[in-house]
Computed example of a mutant assay.
Amino acid sequence: MDILMAQNEQGLFDLPVQSGDLVGDNSLGTEIMVSLFTDVRAEKDELPPECRDLRGWWADALLSMQGDEQGTGSKLWLLRRQKQLESVLVQAETYARSALQWLINEGLASAVSVTAENPVQGMLALKVSVTRASPSVVQRVTDAWMINITETNVTMMGVV
Rank of each mutant, 00 (worst) to 15 (best):
D45M: 04
D45S: 09
E46K: 04
E46W: 05
E46Q: 15
E46H: 05
E46M: 08
E46F: 05
L47R: 06
L47Y: 07
P48L: 08
P48S: 08
P49S: 13
P49E: 12
P49V: 11
P49Y: 11
E50M: 11
E50N: 13
E50G: 10
E50F: 14
C51P: 00
D53Q: 05
L54M: 09
R55H: 12
R55P: 00
G56D: 06
W57H: 14
W57M: 11
W57N: 12
W58M: 14
W58Y: 14
W58N: 10
W58Q: 12
A59W: 13
A59P: 10
A59T: 14
D60N: 03
D60H: 04
D60K: 04
A61W: 10
L62W: 11
L63T: 10
L63N: 13
S64C: 05
S64Y: 00
S64H: 02
M65E: 15
M65D: 15
M65K: 14
M65C: 10
Q66E: 15
G67Y: 01
G67S: 00
G67A: 00
G67Q: 00
D68I: 00
D68E: 09
D68R: 05
D68N: 06
E69W: 01
E69I: 01
E69Y: 00
Q70W: 03
G71R: 00
T72A: 12
G73W: 01
G73Y: 03
S74Q: 03
S74F: 01
S74N: 06
K75W: 02
W77T: 09
W77Q: 09
W77E: 10
L78M: 05
L78C: 03
L78G: 04
L78R: 05
L79P: 04
L79A: 07
